[in-house]
């Protein structure tokens, strides 16, 4: 197919236009964040990079960061371990009653979190799990099971059965086979799962809003909400704080673009 020069120019113009319209709001916020004006007017003539530091201290982010790290770290580890085990069960070993169990687990991909959060809140309330790290971690992990199982099952199923079987002949038990054979082969899929799990947990607002009302255990996203709700908020600092929260995920996305996009497009109706 021959492409004329005009066609080429048109393509780049279109793509650039789209990219600019996506980037514009974000870049604008970046401009606001470094402007000295607290009312949100853009003033790039006098960039004030210290805004980021000021925002960090005024919003009390050191504290919220600690909560975010505890929650996200635990959720990523626990949900990945559970996903690997359940994916191995469905994808390799087979499961008693899997004709019923697998659809039951997939159901969780389609049930919106918003639908179950009300009874979940009252359950957690009676188990004294609201306003605790354990509670919010448990909630995140539970909601990650569906996608994690689906994802790791698909990954393990691409491993040729013969490899596992021959290891079995050699006397390797199921745990050894998982550890020595299936995990190393599936490392790319696990990387993607870890990244997605990190992003979903770090970015979560809704679940934390409902289950964690005590600021001492709230993650950064809620800290930002509290900061923006304050009387006489300084808009440049708010913008700076918002950008700071996005740094970890956007940074990972910079290096792992392919994994993020592939994972998120794989039919994950998840939030």
């Amino acid at each position: 197919m021959t492409i004329t020069k005009r066609e080429k120019i048109f393509n780049y113009t279109l793509l650039t236009l789209l990219a600019v319209s996506v980037l514009f709001p974000i870049v604008w916020i970046l401009g606001v964040a470094v402007s000295p004006s607290t009312t949100g007017t853009l003033d790039l003539g006098h960039p004030q990079w210290s805004n980021f530091v000021t925002a960090w201290t005024q919003a009390g982010f050191t504290h919220f960061l600690k909560s975010s790290m505890i929650i996200t770290g635990s959720v990523v580890v626990l949900s990945t371990v559970l996903a690997v085990m359940s994916g191995y069960a469905f994808g390799v070993l087979g499961v008693v009653g899997e004709k019923a169990l697998f659809p039951l687990i997939l159901l969780g991909i389609m049930i919106p979190m918003e639908s179950i959060v009300v009874p979940l809140y009252y359950d957690f309330l009676s188990f004294h799990l609201t306003d605790t790290y354990q509670g919010i971690i448990l909630a995140h992990v539970g909601m990650s099971v569906s996608f994690g199982t689906f994802w790791m099952r698909a990954a393990f199923r691409t491993v040729p059965a013969g490899i596992g079987e021959s290891a079995e002949m050699d006397g390797a038990n199921s745990w050894t086979r998982l550890w020595r054979i299936y995990l190393p082969i599936s490392r790319p899929a696990i990387t993607t799962l870890v990244l997605l799990s990190f992003m979903w947990t770090w970015n979560d607002y809704f679940l934390s809003l409902i289950l964690v009302s005590d600021p001492a255990h709230q993650p950064l996203t809620l800290g930002l909400g509290a900061f923006s709700g304050r009387y006489l908020v300084k808009i440049n600092l708010l913008a700076a704080a918002a950008l700071l929260i996005s740094v970890p995920v956007v940074g990972l996305y910079l290096f792992f673009q392919r994994q993020f996009i592939r994972g998120m497009l794989s039919g994950a109706v998840k939030g």
Partner: peptide, 28 residues
């Protein structure tokens, strides 16, 4: 036997899922 073993591997995820997703769905 292997499929019972599979169930054992699945059990932790299933338990958490039942607690956080299935039970609240029914309660809802």
């Amino acid at each position: 036997r292997q499929r019972w073993l599979g169930l054992a591997y699945l059990a932790p995820a299933l338990a958490v899922y039942a607690l956080v997703v299935l039970a609240p769905t029914l309660q809802g």
